[in-house]
Write a protein that binds this DNA or RNA. Structure first.
Ligand SMILES: [Mn+2]
Ligand SMILES: [Mn+2]
Length: 544
DNA sequence: GAACTTTTGG
DNA sequence: TTCACACATTCTT
DNA sequence: GAATGTGTGTCTCCAAAAGTTCTT
């Protein structure tokens, strides 16, 4: 773990804001521009204190809780911040409710002694009960006289939020990502960002995006909403316009979640309405809800529409299956589809609460050879290691900050086309065959670097050696091509175990304990492995 | 004061 | 924010 | 037994400090 300078948080903040200021100055409004221009001129201590406050939870802080060894002359420091509009400290602007959590139970009880409250009685109360007691106590008079120290309110928190969204391109990452990188916990690939690209074209699209995040956060925090409330969320989302391309999927996902909630509370009409607004991503739920709402004909024709132009294999398989189901319901002719039946074996092992079924099975097979519990952490990561240079190459718009574990367009349909990779088996065969050195070079030099699909602890040399020894380049090429064709859809569903028996060869096992059954994506991979003649079967575990 | 959760900071 | 599993309920045969 | 829906565990970095709850 590396040592950080004692003003690390300040340096990180400046690095981020300076980047945003330099590359997005044309998007920033007067308030945001002033924020940075005034901040830069603040005394050093005030800048430190402000950023320290930014990294903490909430917006109110007791001065006594802001003691940092590197920040001196705290009183002077916060007054300067207040004069420049970065904090305020007027108690009259706070409600009792906001201030409650700033003091511990014991502190409140001490303060209330002056109000001749019975200490023993109060100590018996739970925190939440004490809170409501205090609220009622001060219903008619002022609580502020009790407070003897300044309470600071941080201002302009929303600006940091805006800057983070501009810098990272999402609302998940934050200044802590700098720290995690700098102390060596997460290593990011050092890709080029020469073809610099703006995630937002104009102020309007940025504002709409900020609005979207606000609506989504509000929805995610809420619970057991009524039909009316859910609809109002849906309408708010629908009123947004001019959103940048990379935000649209998030909006659709949010519309989907809201509609799913409408479906759960059995407001099928509005759920159907909402699924329709989510542009494609929710056609399966739309069909199911139409069926629940006694609109089987409409569901059936939507199934046909999906079959004509499916979004992915999952959707296609669903449409075929459900079309049949609805046809039966409507007494229409049906097609009997061929069902894939994977090979099955049964093993009896002792139940041990300590280990999962997968680990217990792996231990069982390990006595007959070498067995590893790899699930999705073998083939997809190998794929990433082979194609590393394509994944991290500098395509315009792919990388906009140093904290990405994958390019922005990773899951887009034209991802490989943009990188001049033909999704063609001969090309893949040749590529795998000719790039083993590259694979091992990446495995060695990129170790512990964050990358799509990769979970490093599983990827040991011992395991990979056996994979290359027992699985031909041709078969690997087939697997990689399948992955490349639909990375989102095919990154999961791989069998639990890979087994190298003592007598030689390789087998993939999907472990199923009692009461568990194959999932759709697991079936698809098993059937794919059958197609390329790679041994894969289901292991049913019986406890004994 | 043990056992637990939440917050903090590098 | 993910995937796979466990478990409950309902449908289908 | 299949299909469907819901909830859970394990991850997201980790250790120390602060705060709460409940037991002895
Ligand atoms: Mn599994
Ligand atoms: Mn399994």
């Amino acid at each position: 773990m590396k040592e950080l300078p004692d003003n690390y948080y300040y340096l990180n903040f400046c690095e981020m804001v300076r980047f945003v200021h330099d590359s997005y100055s044309h998007l920033l409004n007067d308030r945001e521009l002033a924020f940075w221009n005034i901040f830069r001129e603040l005394p050093y201590n005030s800048k430190l204190l402000y950023v320290r406050m930014l990294t903490r939870k909430g917006e109110l802080f007791r001065l006594s809780k802001l003691n940092y060894s590197e920040i001196e002359k705290i009183s002077e420091t916060y007054h300067f911040l207040a004069d420049c509009g970065f904090v305020s400290y007027d108690l009259r602007h706070y409600s009792l409710n906001e201030v409650l959590h700033l003091f511990t139970k014991n502190e409140w009880i001490l303060l209330l002694q002056k109000k001749k409250c019975c200490t023993k009685e109060l100590k018996k109360l739970k925190r939440s009960e004490l809170d409501s007691f205090i609220i009622t106590l001060f219903k008619d008079h002022d609580w502020r006289e009790l407070i003897q120290e300044p309470i600071l309110k941080i201002l302009n928190q929303d600006i940091l939020n805006t800057f983070q969204i501009l810098y990272f391109g999402n609302s998940i990452q934050s200044l802590t990502d700098f720290v995690l990188r700098d102390i060596g916990i997460s290593t990011f690939e050092s890709y080029d960002m020469n073809s610099l690209h703006c995630l937002f074209n104009d102020r309007f699209s940025l504002d709409q995006t900020l609005k979207f995040y606000k609506i989504r956060d509000q929805f995610l925090e809420s619970s057991s909403l009524s039909s009316k409330e859910l609809l109002s969320y849906l309408n708010k989302l629908n009123d947004l316009s001019g959103l940048p391309k990379h935000i649209l999927p998030k909006v659709n996902k949010c519309k989907y979640s809201i509609s799913r909630e409408l479906e759960r509370i059995k407001d099928f009409d509005n759920a159907i309405l909402g699924y329709g607004l989510a542009e494609g991503i929710s056609r399966e739920r739309l069909v199911r809800t139409l069926d629940k709402n006694k609109q089987a004909e409409k569901g059936l024709s939507l199934c046909e529409e999906i079959i004509q132009d499916p979004l992915n294999i999952e959707e296609l398989e669903f449409a075929i299956f459900f079309k049949n189901k609805l046809a039966k319901k409507l007494s229409l002719p049906t097609l009997s589809a061929e069902v894939f039946k994977p090979l099955q074996t049964t093993i009896n092992i002792h139940k041990n609460e300590e280990f999962s079924v997968e680990l217990a099975s792996a231990a069982y097979f390990d006595t007959l050879g070498n067995c590893y519990y790899v699930e999705n952490s073998l083939f997809a990561p190998m794929f990433t290691l082979f194609f590393w240079d394509f994944i991290f190459c500098d395509v315009p718009g792919a990388f906009t900050n140093p904290f990405q574990y994958r390019p922005h367009d990773f899951y887009e349909h034209d991802f490989w086309a943009k990188r001049n990779v033909q999704l063609n088996i001969d090309w893949f065969k040749a590529y795998v065959h000719n790039n083993l050195n590259k694979f091992w070079y990446n495995w060695t030099t990129k170790k512990n670097t964050l990358a799509p699909f990769i979970y490093w602890p599983v990827l040991t040399k011992e395991l990979l050696d056996q994979v290359f020894l027992n699985i031909s380049h041709t078969k690997l090429a087939h697997i990689f091509l399948h992955l490349a064709k639909d990375m989102r859809g095919n990154k999961s569903g791989f069998p639990d175990l890979i087994f190298f028996p003592n007598k030689g060869g390789v087998k993939l096992f999907e472990v199923k304990g009692p009461g568990d059954s194959l999932q759709k994506n697991q079936k698809r991979w098993l059937s794919f492995f059958e197609g390329i003649e790679l041994n894969a079967e289901v292991v049913n575990v019986r406890w004994c």
